[in-house]
Structure formats: C-alpha cells, structure tokens
Computed example of a mutant assay.
Amino acid sequence: MQAQDPTQLVHLLAELRQEHRDLDSAIEQLVTSIGCDELQITRMKKRKLLLKDAIARLESKLIPDLDA
C-alpha cells in the first residue's frame, strides 16, 4: 500500500466510519422487520466487521511511530 497523506487518511477514515454507522442502522431495521432475510443480515454484519478492522488499521497509521 502506498503511503498516503494524513489528511487523505482522515477523510477515508470518516467515510468508513459513516458506512459503519449506516450499516448498523440498516441491520437494526432489518432485524426488527417481519420476515427479515437472515442471509442479508449476516452479510451486512460481516461487512461491518471488515469496516471495523479497516478503521482500526487506519487509526494505527495515524499514530506516529515512537522509538523506545
């Protein structure tokens, strides 16, 4: 992966967080609906976990390395 500008990383991080929140809302709506599609919910939850991992990776990139 290429080194990116910190402002680009912050922007991408914001987009991923928004998508994560949107998925959370969509999952909640599907779970409460009658006749919900379990497969779709499972896929959305998996995507949400992948987003969480990507967010954690980006956050760690934004933390400067400190030599001990």
Rank of each mutant, 00 (worst) to 15 (best):
residue 46 K to Q: 12
residue 59 E to V: 03
residue 13 L to K: 00
residue 53 D to S: 15
residue 39 L to K: 14
residue 57 R to H: 10
residue 48 K to V: 03
residue 19 E to N: 05
residue 13 L to I: 04
residue 17 R to H: 08
residue 42 T to M: 13
residue 15 E to S: 15
residue 38 E to F: 12
residue 34 I to Y: 07
residue 5 D to A: 13
residue 9 L to R: 05
residue 51 L to E: 00
residue 5 D to H: 09
residue 44 M to D: 00
residue 18 Q to R: 15
residue 64 P to D: 08
residue 44 M to W: 03
residue 26 A to D: 10
residue 12 L to K: 09
residue 32 T to K: 15
residue 62 L to M: 09
residue 27 I to V: 01
residue 1 M to K: 14
residue 55 I to T: 02
residue 22 D to K: 05
residue 52 K to R: 15
residue 9 L to S: 02
residue 68 A to S: 12
residue 15 E to V: 04
residue 37 D to W: 07
residue 28 E to C: 06
residue 33 S to F: 04
residue 48 K to L: 03
residue 7 T to K: 15
residue 26 A to P: 01
residue 67 D to S: 10
residue 51 L to C: 06
residue 29 Q to I: 07
residue 14 A to P: 01
residue 37 D to I: 00
residue 49 L to H: 09
residue 63 I to N: 09
residue 20 H to N: 13
residue 50 L to P: 05
residue 5 D to S: 13
residue 14 A to D: 14
residue 1 M to V: 12
residue 6 P to L: 00
residue 26 A to K: 12
residue 17 R to L: 09
residue 23 L to Q: 02
residue 33 S to G: 04
residue 57 R to D: 11
residue 64 P to T: 01
residue 44 M to G: 05
residue 60 S to T: 04
residue 37 D to P: 01
residue 1 M to P: 13
residue 41 I to G: 00
residue 19 E to D: 13
residue 24 D to T: 14
residue 4 Q to L: 14
residue 59 E to D: 10
residue 41 I to L: 06
residue 47 R to S: 08
residue 37 D to H: 02
residue 8 Q to P: 07
residue 35 G to Q: 09
residue 40 Q to Y: 00
residue 26 A to F: 00
residue 57 R to P: 02
residue 38 E to G: 13
residue 61 K to W: 00
residue 2 Q to T: 09
residue 24 D to Q: 12
residue 12 L to Q: 14
residue 28 E to D: 06
residue 52 K to H: 14
residue 46 K to N: 11
residue 48 K to E: 04
residue 16 L to A: 10
residue 57 R to Q: 13
residue 54 A to Q: 05
residue 40 Q to D: 03
residue 21 R to W: 03
residue 31 V to L: 08
residue 25 S to I: 11
residue 49 L to D: 10
residue 66 L to E: 08
residue 28 E to Q: 09
residue 39 L to I: 08
residue 58 L to N: 04
residue 62 L to K: 08
residue 66 L to D: 07
residue 12 L to P: 02
residue 41 I to Y: 07
residue 13 L to A: 02
residue 22 D to L: 07
residue 39 L to T: 06
residue 62 L to H: 07
residue 14 A to R: 14
residue 14 A to V: 04
residue 38 E to Y: 11
residue 41 I to W: 01
residue 46 K to H: 09
residue 42 T to V: 09
residue 40 Q to C: 00
residue 21 R to Q: 13
residue 36 C to G: 12
residue 23 L to V: 01
residue 10 V to C: 06
residue 14 A to H: 08
residue 36 C to K: 13
residue 49 L to R: 08
residue 33 S to P: 02
residue 56 A to T: 10
residue 48 K to M: 06
residue 21 R to E: 14
residue 43 R to E: 15
residue 9 L to H: 00
residue 37 D to C: 04
residue 67 D to V: 09
residue 55 I to K: 08
residue 41 I to R: 02
residue 13 L to R: 06
residue 35 G to T: 01
residue 1 M to Q: 13
residue 38 E to Q: 15
residue 3 A to P: 06
residue 8 Q to V: 11
residue 22 D to V: 01
residue 32 T to C: 05
residue 21 R to H: 12
residue 5 D to F: 02
residue 35 G to I: 01
residue 34 I to C: 10
residue 64 P to I: 06
residue 47 R to N: 12
residue 35 G to Y: 03
